[in-house]
Design a protein around this nucleic acid. Sequence first.
DNA 1: GTGGTCTAGACCACA
DNA 2: GTGGTCTAGACCACC
Lengths: 128, 128, 128, 128
Amino acid sequence: MDVTVSPNNPVPLYEQIVEQVRAKILTGELKAGDPLPSIRQLAGQLLASVITTKRAYSELEAEGLIITRTGLGTFVADLGPETIIKLKKEVVMEHLEEGVRVARQLELANEEINCLFRQALDGSDERV
Amino acid sequence: MDVTVSPNNPVPLYEQIVEQVRAKILTGELKAGDPLPSIRQLAGQLLASVITTKRAYSELEAEGLIITRTGLGTFVADLGPETIIKLKKEVVMEHLEEGVRVARQLELANEEINCLFRQALDGSDERV
Amino acid sequence: MDVTVSPNNPVPLYEQIVEQVRAKILTGELKAGDPLPSIRQLAGQLLASVITTKRAYSELEAEGLIITRTGLGTFVADLGPETIIKLKKEVVMEHLEEGVRVARQLELANEEINCLFRQALDGSDERV
Amino acid sequence: MDVTVSPNNPVPLYEQIVEQVRAKILTGELKAGDPLPSIRQLAGQLLASVITTKRAYSELEAEGLIITRTGLGTFVADLGPETIIKLKKEVVMEHLEEGVRVARQLELANEEINCLFRQALDGSDERV
DNA sequence: GTGGTCTAGACCACA
DNA sequence: GTGGTCTAGACCACC
C-alpha cells in the first residue's frame, strides 16, 4: 500500500497516515474486507515508530473505517455505499464550512466568496 | 471591545483572540490608529492571564496588523485598503483550498465539489 | 528650536529628543552658552510630557553637553572644538563598529564589508 | 553547540541566543536539516529558563531560519544559498546604514565617514 | 523524550 | 499607567 509521510509537513505524522488510508477506503481503492498492512510492517515502510502507526490505526478504528481482529490483523470495515458518500461529504464540508464561516466573519458578500471558491477550484485544476 | 473566548475550544486562547481582533481590523470595525485595550485590561475581561493576551498581541504585531508602543499602548497599524482586501482573501482562501484539496484526494468531480460549496454557503446563510 | 518627534518611531521619545539636540550642538547650530528652550516650553511644542522632556535634558546633561543653572535655565556647555570632533566620531563609530562586528561574526571578507559600506553611503547620497 | 549569554548584557537573553544561532546558520556552521539542541537542554546549558530559550527558537522560526516539529525537535530550515547571502547583507546593512544616517545628521563629509569606516574595519582586524 | 499552551508573579523601561 | 523581559512550574499533544 503506497502511503507516504513527510516529517516536514506540519500535520502530525499519525494524521498524515489517517488521511491517506481514509482516502483509499473512501475512494474504493481499499474495499470492505481488504487486509491492511500490519502496524509493524507499515511503520517500517514509513520510517515511523510503531506507536505512531498504532495511533493512526486506532483513530481509523474509532471512526469505524477499519476493524482490528486480534491475532488476524486489520481489515477494512463494511460500510454501505451511502455511508461512504456521506463520509466523503463530511470530510470536505468541514473545510468548506470553515472557509465560509471565516468569510462571513470578515463580512465578505456571497458573490465575493463565490469568486474565491472558483479561484480555489480552478487553481487546483491546473495542477491536476 | 467585545472579544469572547472559550477555554473548552481546542483552538488555543491566544489564537482565538488573534482571530477576533484580526477580523475587527480587516472589517474596519477597528481603524488605523485606533487604540486597543491594554493587555492587562483585556486579560481581566477575558479571565485570561496577562501573558496569554500579550502573546496574542505579539502575533498580531508580527503580522503587521498592530503596533505596540511601550508606555503608550497598542494601536491599529495603517494598512492600505488594497492590503486589507488581499489579507481578507488570503485568510479565506486557506480554508477553501484545503477543502478543494481534500475533495480532489477523495476523487470528487468538480460538479460535486461545487454542490457541497453551495450547501456550505446556503447553510450558513440561514443562520445569518 | 525645530525638534520633531514621532510616536510611530520605535525609538523612545526621549531618545529622539536627545539625538536631535545632540546633533544641533555637535554641528554648531547651537553654540556654547546658547540657551535651550525650557522643559515646559519644549514639552508643549512636542506634545510630549514634561517628564519625557526632562529625561532627555538629564541625559544630555549627563553626557556633559548641556548645563542646567537652577532658576536661570539650560545652556549649551562649553566644549572645545577637539572635544566636539571627538564626540562626533564616537557617535558614528558606535554604529559602524557594530556593523563590522556583525559582519565578522557572519564571516564576511573585508572586501565584502567594504562593498556593503559603499552601498550604504551611496544609497543615502541619493536621498540627500 | 557553543552559545554563550551574559545576563549583564543589556541585550535581552533571548536576543543574544537568536543572534548567535542565526550567525551559525548563516555562516554554514549549522546546515539545512541539522538538529538544534532541545530547548530544555539549551536552557540548562545557558542557565536560562526553558521559556527564554523557547522564545529565541520561536523568533528564529518566525524568521524562517529553523523549523520545529513537536515531538521530534528543532531543525535548521533549508534556505537556498542566495537567500543566505541576502540575509547576511541585510543584517550587516542595518547597522552600516544607521551609522551613515547619523554621520549625515552630524554633517560629516563622505571623506570623513569613509575614514571612520576604515578605522572600524582596521580596529576589528587587530582583534581577529 | 520532544515542543505547545497556560498559569502566576516579579522587576524594569517608557510616558 | 503602559508594554518588555525573565522566572518557575503545570498540563497536554506528539513521537
